[in-house]
């Protein structure tokens, strides 16, 4: 294995804490100020969807990129969030915020459950089992149609509330800030995790399993921690998605959503967290810009994904790094 070129970009402590914190705060402040410029509810809707995708994609990057665990059931964790929230808030009548939290917890438990069969497996077998897990969850939801609405889905799912604020007539401002807050919390959590000792140990397991185990890293515990950590905010994002859309549909388990989110992870460049977030902006805006193309839109998106995967294997972040290196080179040595 080419250990060097995989390990270095994600090695903990490469960019100093202060520098990253400044970039983090500046980046998210910029996002928080966006509604001042974008007043219409359509562009706010697009941004909310970007934030949801960014949470799901960046959490996937934790298990897929850092952990090297090919978890193809990640969207099932999102779907579990959607359905747990909808069932709790609508059928059981529980307070939406508590239901939101419960969704995150349930997804985490589901992730722990799916870790058990993949503990002994590697590579393609993990893809197949987790893929099977996602299908299993979907089939169970479809077969319990009197509770979950089956393939019809659930409608009139209760939305979130903030004190007495009117969530519907504010041009989606409240939902925008809740989504942004979730993205900030998720990103903060992910970055803290990957820069911690636990983060270093899962990278060590990915790059050299035998050596990491011989140095006392527990494969079983760390794999479980990785998947559980990647599940919590994914489940919350699912719950938020259901609350925002006011419905739950079986489509979240479909291949097309999984393809889009996975391409965000890979397009951004794995093992960066930020890459997945940037890629979800790029892909969603790109896809919205092509709304007029109709049937051609998914084809152009698919073609774009293939071309980028062939030309830039390290993704958008790799592209940005290369460009940055070029710029700093020019500044240091003026031609």
């Amino acid at each position: 294995m080419t250990l060097l070129d995989i390990a270095i970009p994600s090695a903990p402590g490469r960019v100093t804490w202060n520098r990253e914190a400044i970039g983090f705060v500046a980046g998210f402040l910029l996002l928080a100020l966006l509604p001042l410029v974008l007043g219409d509810s359509y562009s706010r809707h697009v941004l909310i969807m970007i934030f949801i995708y960014a949470i799901v994609a960046s959490n996937w990057d934790l298990s897929l990129g850092y952990g090297g665990v090919f978890n193809f059931g990640h969207l099932a964790l999102f779907g579990i969030g959607v359905y747990v929230y909808s069932l709790l808030a609508k059928v059981a009548g529980i307070d939406p915020w508590i239901a939101l939290l419960a969704s995150g917890v349930t997804s985490t438990l589901a992730a722990v459950l799916v870790t058990i069969p993949i503990l002994r497996l590697k590579g393609i077998y993990i893809i197949l089992v987790t893929f099977g897990f996602a299908q299993l969850v979907m089939q169970v939801i479809i077969s319990q149609s009197d509770l979950t609405g089956g393939t019809q889905g659930l409608v009139r799912v209760p939305g979130l509330y903030l004190f007495d604020h009117n969530m519907i007539r504010d041009g989606k401002l409240a939902y925008f800030y809740i989504a942004l807050a979730l993205l900030v919390a998720s990103t903060l959590f992910l970055r803290l995790f990957v820069r911690s000792r636990a983060g270093a140990s899962i990278v060590a397991l990915r790059d050299n399993e035998e050596y990491a185990i011989s140095r006392g890293v527990s494969l079983v515990r760390q794999r479980m921690v990785t998947l559980a950590a990647s599940a919590f905010f994914t489940g919350i994002a699912g719950a938020f998605y259901a609350a925002y859309q006011r419905n739950a549909s079986i489509d979240v388990f479909g291949m097309s959503l999984a393809t889009i989110i996975l391409s965000m992870v890979l397009l951004g460049g794995t093992s960066t967290i930020y890459g997945a977030i940037i890629a979800s902006f790029v892909l969603t805006v790109f896809s919205e810009a092509m709304a007029d193309f109709g049937a051609w839109r998914p084809m152009i998106t698919a073609l774009l994904i293939i071309v980028i995967m062939l030309v830039y294997p390290s993704g958008l972040v790799g592209m940005i790094r290369a460009a940055w290196a070029l710029v700093t080179e020019r500044i240091k040595r003026p031609a």
Binding site: S256, T259, L266, M299, L310, P313
Partner: peptide, 16 residues
Amino acid sequence: NIVLVVVITTLAAGSL
């Protein structure tokens, strides 16, 4: 990382 990348390129090609 060919296994993973081929999954995504064949999925995208399939969608295309």
